[in-house]
Structures are given as structure tokens and as C-alpha cells.
Design a protein around this nucleic acid. Structure first.
Lengths: 222, 222
DNA sequence: TTGTTGAATTTTGCATACAATTTTGTATGC
DNA sequence: GCATACAAAATTGTATGCAAAATTCAACAA
């Protein structure tokens, strides 16, 4: 994005509200299936119903909410079938991001990713989950950014929001965790060698494994 | 989905309006970049501003409109750069749809696609473009349907809506047209042999060529 | 107890009203 | 003539009001 001109970001109320509710849902503030009465949200956010309803419509079109006519909004649930549907699509998009990133990444960004990676590895060896997951996500975001395709980024971000990361990252098995770190090491190698097809393959595999982890976490919750 | 119970589709006004405006934009009723004042749309559709604004927010989140704070809605334009962004993503999604379709398609649906295909070929030999394009799109939709992944279908449909306007007006060159038909023949072969990777490769190539066609059409319009 | 009926309450859908911002048009100065 | 300044009109953003639908809950019957 341009940094020379100050991007005067004038946020309308409905935009701010959309983002806030989206964050709340993604972070698991409301359990799946729970109702979100307009009145409650209005009071919580200190706004009227008009901008709130505009936000709800957008979030529903993103698949984060389910709107039933005359029955209000519910937080969309996530079944194992939903996950089986989501992950192949996310896998295809991440694979593409890997291919594009290999073609377009700069040494600077690669160095940034490398730094993030080794910091992440450190947190793994220490068994510190929250910072590990934070760095993990940052790395994937950096790769997406390196692909320089906002449409791709938007599509991926939209789908990934539906997984509601916060809920499922808490309990990862040690064996799967170690495997994920190994996959990340392979990713770094492929990126350094600008080996697009290999990175694509690794990312697809990585996502597939993540899919199983999320499904296991889902089953554990029930 | 359940088909035993009648799926009572109760359309809210904002839903109907969203769909109508979306169709109007996709079919080119409003030129790209043109303003869409709320007052005009309200009078055209015979509704008040509340449901209209909800529809506009959704269409903007789909990328069909651009909303500037306090400045209203404009029909999103489509630059060559946008097309270069869109097609790799659509290519990745279509490739996935091909792989999944090969794994899941039934003989019945394959027969339907075959019928559509040969009808399409007929229109090609006769030089009849509109019915050709219609059948072409139907075939791609059938493949998506055969993949049985609504999330994938939704993601693809969303992106494809942004370029459909260009596709309508596309004056395809005879040489490219023949090439497209050959690619479709390959697709049918790969589907019949349930050769997922090959179908994925063909579709990716097909989309890449389509990208160039659309860019040429865009350049011709300007 | 359990299930059903129906009125009261709540909640949603849409329209309208008001405030804030932008756009338009006109007059004035150079 | 051209640019600027300012007022008027139009447009958008938000809040509120009212009608329709759904939910709740209490009374009643089996």
C-alpha cells in the first residue's frame, strides 16, 4: 500500500461496528449457534439499530452469521463437514499464495519471515502456545502479502475467519505440533529456493493436517 | 440438503433487493464507475432506504460496488490489473473443482455435461455466440456442482460475478474460440477418465487463456 | 405432570425523520 | 475570463417510530 500519501481512513460507524463484531466472533466471544439480539449488540456498542443491521448483513454474507428472516442473527456453527468443505478451498488458495510468493518475494521480506520462523520455533521448544500461534499466523500472512494479490488475500481471510482460530488452537497434540514445525521448516526452505511448486505442495499438505487437527478439536469440544 | 421438507424460502426485502441490484450490475445495466444514488435506486425499486442500504453494504463486501464514506456507491470498475489478480485465484478454484469433480461425479451428471458439451460444439460450428457462452457457463457450473462443495461454489461464483460483465461483451476471436472448444474437449476426456490432476491442469490453462481474452475485450472497450 | 392455547412481551423488518457532510450554484473579487 | 468564497440544495449517515412476526409465559385441559 502507498505510504507517501496519508491514507485518510474515515471510518463510518457501520464499518467500525462490522469489524468489531467480526473480531468478537472470530475470537470466540460468542459461542457458535448463540443468538445475537440486535438490542443487546446496540447497547453493548452504544449505537442504534440501523448501522448495526448493516453490519450484520455483511457478516452474514461472509458466512460468520446466519440470518433467518424475522428470527435474527446466530453465530454460524462449524461442523466437521463444514471443515471438510473449507480446508480444500483454503488449501488451494494457500498453495497459490505459495507459488506467487516464490515468484515475487523480496530478500527483505524473506528475512522477515525467517526471523518470525525462528522466534516461533523458540516458542515451540518452550511450549508456549499463544505466542507460537500468533507468530504462526503472522508467517502465513506474510506469505500471503508476498504474493501481492489482494483478491487472494481477501478470499483467504474470509474463509479463515470461519474457522475461529481462537477456539481450536488451545489444545494441540505435541506430536502434531512438532509435525507442524517441521512443515514450517520445509516451507522456509522452499521459499528461500523460490521453489513455487514445492511450497505449494507443502502448504496444501500443511493445511490438510491442520484440517484434521481442527476436526479433532471440534470432536473434543462436543 | 433435505428435499423432503419444502424449503420455505421467505425472502426479506433486502435479500430480494440485493439479488436484483447484483443482477443489474452483472448484466451491465450500470456502467462501471457510475454513481448509484440511493434516491434513484429507492424510486426504481419502490422501497425505502433502509433495506436498500443493507443491500449496498453486502454488494460492496462482494466487490461489486465501491462505497466511499459520505459519497455513496459506485459500480466497481475492472482494470487489466484486476483481471490479472482475479484469474489466478479463479484458476486455482476451478482446478480444485476439477479434482473434486473427478472424484465425485456420477455417470448421470457426466452424461449431462457431455450433452451440454456437444450442443455447445454445435453452436460453435454455427458461429452462434450467445448460446455458446450460455452452454459454456452451464458446463462450468455443472463441474462445480459435481465437486459438491458449496463453499467452493460460493467463492468461485463471487469472483466470477466481477468479470461476468466483461464476458458478456467479449467479442471472442475465431482462433481463440476454436482453442477454447479444444480445451473443453480435453476437459470432457479427463472427466470421463476421472483424471483429476489432468482436469485441474486443463482448467488452469483454460482459465489462463480466458484471462487473456477478457483483458483483450477490456482493452477493446476502452 | 405434560401438552396446548392464546394473550402479552419481545424482536425483527421497513419507513421515516433529523443531523452531518458533500455537492452544486451563484456571486464576488482579481 | 478565471478563481475563490459562500450559501443553497442534495445526498449520505444515524436515530427513532411503527407494524408484523416470533417468542415467552401463564392459564387451562387431558
Amino acid at each position: 500500500m502507498s505510504e507517501s500519501m496519508a491514507p485518510i481512513e474515515r471510518h463510518s460507524l457501520h464499518d467500525v461496528v462490522t469489524e468489531r463484531i467480526r473480531d468478537m466472533i472470530v475470537e470466540g466471544a460468542y459461542p457458535p449457534g448463540s443468538r445475537l439480539p440486535e438490542r443487546v449488540l446496540c447497547e453493548t456498542l452504544g449505537i442504534s439499530r440501523t448501522p448495526l443491521r448493516e453490519a450484520l448483513k455483511v457478516l452474514a454474507s461472509e458466512g460468520l452469521l446466519e440470518l433467518a428472516p424475522n428470527r435474527g442473527a446466530r453465530v454460524a456453527g462449524l461442523t466437521a463437514d463444514d471443515v471438510d468443505e473449507l480446508f480444500p478451498v483454503m488449501g488451494a488458495l494457500e498453495a497459490l499464495s505459495g507459488e506467487l510468493a516464490c515468484a515475487r518475494i523480496t530478500e527483505t521480506v524473506l528475512a522477515e519471515i525467517r526471523a518470525l520462523h525462528y522466534q516461533m520455533v523458540l516458542h515451540h521448544t518452550r511450549g508456549e502456545r499463544p505466542p507460537y500461534f500468533s507468530l504462526n499466523q503472522q508467517i502465513h500472512e506474510k506469505i500471503l502479502e508476498a504474493a501481492r494479490n489482494p483478491t487472494l488475500t481477501a478470499a483467504y481471510t474470509n474463509l479463515s475467519g470461519r474457522i475461529r482460530r481462537a477456539r481450536y488452537t488451545a489444545n494441540i497434540a505435541a506430536s502434531r505440533w512438532a509435525q507442524a514445525v517441521r512443515e514450517h521448516e520445509e516451507m522456509l526452505e522452499a521459499l528461500a529456493e523460490r521453489d513455487g511448486p514445492r511450497l505449494a505442495e507443502i502448504l496444501k499438505r500443511h493445511l490438510h493436517n491442520k484440517c484434521e487437527t481442527v476436526k479433532a478439536a471440534l470432536a473434543a469440544i462436543e
